[in-house]
């Protein structure tokens, strides 16, 4: 591939991205439901991109990532409803809490890889789901509800979400291109070789885990403020599976793959449910189709076609 072509691609991508951002900024004109839907799609996309830092870049499949969404969400809910903090302090606390939990759980999980890592994360996710159901302080099965929405306006809050997600995506993008991001990929592709090169494999995996957990927690925290409520089901394993689904739908080997996947999923679910009560069937069929026909994900497939 020649240099020229590459430059052209970059500029094409830049144009597409600028157009995308302009479009996103105009969303509130399309009505409140659309605003709500796109805000959730953005947060799902952020969570999936964070998940993909661990999965696509570091080669670790977490099947319990909804745990961190829940940690971020519950921290905000507890800070606001139980201790009366404002949303800024609460979101900051959620970031800290997600990072701490990410460090603790990551420390235990990164000793393993592949299916063992997946199942271990699943076990932790289910454990915390169980705790949320049982613990009164977290509202038990009812969860915590009736939180005030920041700025008292869905439209204004949408811009908070949009800005936070864009900034987070930018930070994640910078990380994946930094030497840290390269070390993630080195560990993913060949842990033995990375070890020889002086990269601490476990420490690298742990760093990836913590960053991933923190941004997933941020997505959960912002989502709680959008929904004004949170319940234990946000940590159930099927929600973790949604992140995996969304990532593979868009394409795990492209940075923006999970974002594309997040939007496709959110709109697909929204439309499918309006059309048929068997909407889960539709989602399942799409999932099977993706695996069979677009294993690189939708965005991966498109880029492949574009680049020949």
């Amino acid at each position: 591939m020649g240099e020229e072509v590459k430059e052209q691609e970059v500029s094409m991508e830049t144009v597409a991205m600028i157009l995308g951002v302009i479009l996103l900024a105009l969303v509130p004109l399309a009505g409140r439901h659309m605003t709500h839907l796109v805000a959730s799609a953005l947060l799902l996309s952020l969570a999936a991109t964070s998940f993909n830092l661990l999965f696509g870049y570091t080669g670790l499949l977490s099947f319990g990532h909804a745990l961190f969404w829940g940690v971020g969400g519950y921290t905000v809910a507890v800070m606001m409803a139980r201790f009366g903090f404002g949303y800024l302090e609460s979101v900051a606390a959620a970031l800290a809490m997600s990072a701490i939990m990410g460090a603790a759980i990551g420390f235990l999980c990164v000793r393993h890889t592949r299916i063992y890592f997946a199942i271990l994360t699943l076990a932790f996710g289910q454990m915390f789901y169980g705790i949320a159901v049982k613990w009164d302080f977290l509202g038990g099965s009812d969860g915590i509800y009736g939180l005030p929405r920041p700025l008292n306006s869905l439209e204004l809050y949408y811009y908070v979400v949009l800005a936070s997600v864009l900034v987070s995506l930018y930070i994640l993008r910078v990380i994946t291109r930094s030497s840290l991001g390269l070390s993630f990929m080195a560990v993913r592709d060949n842990a033995f070789r990375a070890e020889f090169l002086g990269i601490g494999v476990r420490a690298t995996r742990l760093k990836s885990f913590i960053i991933s957990a923190t941004f997933t927690g941020l997505a959960g925290a912002l989502w709680v403020l959008l929904e004004t409520a949170i319940g234990p089901e946000s940590m159930f394993w099927t929600h973790s599976a949604e992140f995996v689904f969304v990532t593979l739908l868009g394409g795990p080997r492209v940075f923006l793959g999970p974002v594309v996947g997040g939007f496709i999923y959110a709109f697909l679910a929204d439309v499918a449910m309006s059309v048929t009560e068997f909407w889960l069937f539709v989602i399942g069929a799409v999932l099977i189709g993706i695996v069979l026909f677009f294993p690189y994900g939708v965005l991966g497939y498109l880029l492949k076609r574009l680049r020949g």
């Binding site: 709500h36 409520a229 319940g231 929600h239």
Partner: peptide, 10 residues
């Protein structure tokens, strides 16, 4: 369950 409020709003 994740989208109860969003669906109501829709």
């Amino acid at each position: 369950r994740q989208n109860v409020l969003q669906n109501i709003r829709k």
